[in-house]
Amino acid sequence: MESSATPASAQFPQDSQIWDSLKQAIATSSGFQRWQMEHRVIDQSQDYNLDNRVRRYLRETLETLAY
C-alpha cells in the first residue's frame, strides 16, 4: 500500500514556483521591509530564513486584519 503523504512540492511543483515568486515579491514590498525593521530586535532568537519571515509576516498581517 502506497503512502498518500507526498511532499506538496513533489505533488504540485507549480505551487512551489508560485510561492517562490510570491515570496520574493512580498520580501521587496515596503510593508514587509517596515515590518522587518520593527521586528529586528524581537527576532534575534528566530530563524532568519526568508521563507519563515514571510510566513510570519503574512500570519501577523492576517491576524491584524481579522481583529
Rank of each mutant, 00 (worst) to 15 (best):
M1R: 04
S3V: 04
S4P: 11
A5P: 01
A8S: 07
S9Q: 13
A10C: 10
A10E: 12
A10Y: 10
A10H: 11
Q11G: 03
Q11H: 12
P13N: 01
Q14K: 10
S16W: 05
S16N: 05
Q17Y: 00
Q17V: 07
Q17S: 05
I18D: 03
D20F: 05
L22C: 11
K23V: 01
K23N: 04
K23Q: 15
I26S: 01
I26L: 12
I26C: 10
A27P: 01
F32I: 02
F32E: 02
W35E: 00
Q36A: 03
Q36S: 13
M37L: 11
E38T: 03
H39Y: 05
H39D: 02
R40Y: 05
V41Q: 11
I42D: 08
I42K: 12
S45A: 14
Q46N: 13
Q46C: 10
D47E: 13
D47C: 11
Y48P: 02
N49M: 04
N49P: 00
N52R: 15
R53G: 00
R53V: 01
R55A: 09
R55D: 01
R56M: 04
R56H: 05
L58W: 04
R59H: 11
R59F: 14
E60S: 07
E60Y: 05
T61I: 00
L62H: 10
E63R: 06
E63W: 00
L65I: 08
A66T: 09
A66H: 10
Y67T: 10
